[in-house]
Design a protein around this nucleic acid. Structure first.
Lengths: 166, 166
DNA sequence: ACAATCATGTAAGCAGTTACATGATTTT
DNA sequence: AAAATCATGTAACTGCTTACATGATTGT
């Protein structure tokens, strides 16, 4: 098997596939506009990554010269489609725990007194409610449903936590 | 405010605080034994990170020379305790989404036909069930409860996903 | 005694970050 | 025409990874 895709690479391929063809800028924008703040979608990450994947034969680049400054538009090669499917349908990785900033903290919360634990949990809930309210107005066509069920499941979990902090 | 801790640094401080004092090796072991696979707990990450925090004045190091090879044991300074609490009780960061390999994939799952989506979801559920069974036998004294409620919430979410993939 | 494992690191590489540079377009 | 924003990158830095080196201890 060829070199496995990183999650950022996989997500980038998916963004390009969704659009049929895209520039690095468009991909970066997609990440920057995502409700997840895990990837910043910085140019310094995206442009070199796309280039890398083109060099690996996963993307075809077409130079668009519409009178102005040259620009690269990319679309998936057959290899690229295979790689994308390999990443997208990888059950083992998908079943992993990933990184959860709340879980990471909760397992150590016994280090502070109960009053502070309660205050912390209240703060998290408040922040989370704010986020949920804001995200309700996000556009994000189909991925929105995914995001919203995720938020709902998260809210349920937040409701289960009182028993843990005492 | 001084330099904010990374999540790995915060978690490391918490591990040391829990033990009162610890070597880099012990911290690395704690990460390696965690049910989350997000951090490998490699020596190459942990040893330099602990050193960095000692240089920043968050940790006191004591050289233990029990006849054999010298070894550093660390414990938190007052500054270290402050930094740990700042990290641990940071509601804003705790309320973030983090990185979820399943969510990341789900938002792009419409790129493949329904049959494959169903197969994928079944695979994820199977993998997840395996993990849950395995984790049930993990020791992890108090953090276990956190982990288990997390797994349960996750399982509930997995149950909500059928509606999304059709 | 030898092998396996425990323990303490270092070195090189890689994938992200922020910050910068610069060209083109749009707004005022 | 000037300022703001859109767009295409590059450069330096950081924090993690894998892989290695090596010393000490334990098991057979």
């Amino acid at each position: 098997m060829a070199n496995r895709l990183t999650d950022l690479e996989g997500a980038a391929l998916a963004e390009i596939a969704k659009r049929g063809a895209a520039t690095s800028y468009a991909v970066a924008q997609a990440f920057a506009g995502s409700p997840s703040e895990f990837w910043s979608g910085s140019a310094g990450a995206v442009y070199p990554m796309i280039k890398r994947m083109a060099a690996r034969g996963l993307l075809n680049s077409e130079t668009a010269l519409t009178g102005k400054r040259p620009s690269q538009t990319y679309c998936l090669t057959e290899q690229g489609v295979t790689a994308l499917h390999g990443w997208l349908l990888d059950c083992e990785r998908a079943a992993g725990l990933g990184f959860d900033p709340l879980r990471t903290r909760l397992v150590h919360l016994h280090l502070v007194p109960v009053a502070q634990r309660e205050q912390f949990l209240a703060g998290v809930r408040s922040q989370f409610a704010q986020r949920t309210a804001k995200d309700a107005f996000e556009s994000q066509p189909l991925s929105r449903k995914v995001h919203q069920t995720w938020l709902r499941a998260r809210a349920q979990w937040l409701g289960m936590l009182d028993q843990l902090i005492e």
